[in-house]
């Protein structure tokens, strides 16, 4: 039974880490340039948004909840921050204020989800789908047509370098520090406890309702961070920007070892899961796959990675 005990003692993100290393190796074999500093920086700045989104999604999944509105929140934050920056001017102070307000919008969206799912006890999948329609409507109300540009200072900073190091790496470092601190926080421990056995958590006196609502708010905040990253990456506002990314955030969390049934997973694993999804995309591209085949190969690879991740994490319960 050493096999079993090995499975139990390994870090939960080990399978996704192995998949990630394989993906890097395959990318390097297919096109050595894909491992150049320039290509890596491009990968990181493109997929920062998905990393933040996956972390937010994982936080609610910890408590056995789910949030299908993260993409819509991201889109709403994207158009809000661009509109605010346009209204307030492009001074550093105004940009920071706009970003702060946009994060507040994300938190408010998360709070609405929390109230509906936790306090009013709607089923999470359908309730957050309904709010995603609402958030998309609000985004279209803020900015009916895509294409308003973000201030130059904003995207130049995001795409630029500080002391020779790409700014995206600072954001990545901030994300890693944030999840390092979060993973050790009482908040995350309690979310996991609630997700593991909600009734038992309730009976031992944990404030289950408030913990889950705060999980949704935190998820909204991370979706807002993701929205800011998208804004820096695309340098403009687009209400429909959050299309497919919601489903990718769920896939990244599951790849990273989080169980949709709650109580299992790591935030770090989800960041790695988001990177795997990014690397699958670049691998398909670098392999010289004909363009019409790229989506199919990508879809098959993500599906295979999900299966491998679930089977090898040894807790393939549904």
């Amino acid at each position: 039974m050493t096999h079993r005990s090995l499975l139990r003692t390994m870090p939960p993100y080990l399978p996704v880490l192995i998949i990630l290393i394989c993906m890097f190796a395959l990318n390097g074999l297919a096109e050595p340039n894909s491992l150049s500093a320039y290509a890596i920086k491009g990968l990181v700045s493109t997929y920062l948004a998905l990393m933040f989104l996956a972390v937010g999604q994982t936080i609610v999944i910890f408590a056995a909840d789910i949030d299908l509105s993260v993409g819509a929140i991201l889109g709403l934050v994207n158009v809000t921050v661009v509109s605010l920056m346009q209204a307030l001017g492009d001074t550093p102070g105004a940009i920071l204020l706009s970003m702060l307000l946009a994060v507040g919008v994300g938190a408010a969206c998360g709070a609405l989800n929390g109230v509906l799912v936790v306090i009013l006890r709607l089923q999470a999948i359908v309730a957050t789908f309904a709010t995603s329609v609402l958030f998309l409507g609000l985004a279209l109300w803020v900015m009916p047509v895509a294409g308003t540009p973000a201030p130059r200072l904003f995207w130049r900073t995001f795409g630029g370098r500080i002391m020779g190091i790409p700014f995206a790496y600072f954001v990545l470092a901030a994300l890693l520090v944030l999840i390092f601190l979060l993973a050790r926080s009482r908040f995350i421990q309690r979310l996991l406890t609630v997700g593991d056995d909600q009734l038992a958590a309730f009976q031992t006196g944990l404030p289950v309702t408030s913990i889950r609502v705060r999980g949704y708010i935190m998820c909204g905040v991370f979706a807002a961070f993701a929205g800011l990253c998208i804004t820096g990456d695309t340098a403009s506002g687009d209400p429909n920007v959050g299309g497919l990314i919601t489903l990718n955030s769920v896939a990244a969390a599951v790849l990273g070892g989080a169980a949709l049934s709650g109580g299992v997973g790591t935030l770090f694993g989800s960041v790695l899961g988001a990177l795997v999804i990014g690397l699958v995309g670049s691998l398909v591209f670098f392999l010289g796959t004909p363009s019409e085949w790229q989506n199919l190969v990508q879809g098959l690879t993500v599906l295979a990675a999900l299966m491998v991740g679930i089977l090898f994490s040894g807790r393939a319960r549904a």
């Binding site: 489903l247 989506n295 879809g299 599906l303 319960r317």
Partner: peptide, 24 residues
């Protein structure tokens, strides 16, 4: 394979959408 339905059918959606691009 005991893959959660949400994940399995979501992954399948990605595959089918890829298939659609090829077919088209």
């Amino acid at each position: 394979l005991r893959i959660p339905p949400l994940v399995m059918t979501l992954g399948m959606l990605g595959v089918v959408q890829g298939l659609l691009v090829v077919a088209r």
